[in-house]
Write a protein that binds this DNA or RNA. Structure first.
Lengths: 84, 84
DNA sequence: CGAACACTTGGCTTATTTACCAAATGAAAC
DNA sequence: GTTTCATTTGGTAAATAAGCCAAGTGTTCG
């Protein structure tokens, strides 16, 4: 759960739900140093949420637990209907 | 999400899924100082995950977002079938 | 009213997380 | 083989979070 406790990591997960991405793409997305992003990805990997695969020069990350997305949808709906 | 990033808080949520509990019951459960538990509950409350209600001398907390439980079930099943 | 009880808040110390820079790795291109 | 490019790792400083004790708040009970 701790692995989900950072905005940048959530942003990355959201992005990865649309398909695999290399570190540089995610770095551009969150707008932090590439080393920072790499460490965030290491956290997610260690938690078993993503997997990585080296393809040529780049390393591509991919979601391993689709379940996470269900949770996001759930949260969204709670927030959405929270105003009633 | 940060609100879910602590073992004691997860334990409390799990417990609250079985019904409302007062602070003293939760304190006994997690085995920490009551002030610590109170602060954890404040975090959960601020995050909109629980609500509190004063009944006589005690304050009772209750789950506000059942959705959290779905997520836990999801995680459990992922862990369970993770060994294949 | 005053004491007792259940809880919250403030203050402070220690532990954990985060972020960046710089240096190391590892594959690919020349 | 060496340079280059993408990424990871080490190191360190700054920010956040966690824990406990002590003091404060609000209710109930005598």
């Amino acid at each position: 759960m701790k692995a989900l406790a950072h905005p940048s990591r959530l942003m990355m997960i959201e992005e990865l739900s649309h398909g695999e991405r290399c570190v540089c793409e995610l770095t551009e997305l969150v707008g932090a140093d590439i080393s920072t992003v790499s460490k965030h990805l290491a956290v997610l990997k260690k938690a078993g949420i993503v997997t990585d695969e080296k393809k040529g020069k780049q390393v591509y990350y991919r979601l391993k637990v689709p379940c996470v997305l269900n949770f996001f949808h759930c949260i969204e709906s709670v927030i959405t209907e929270g105003s009633r």
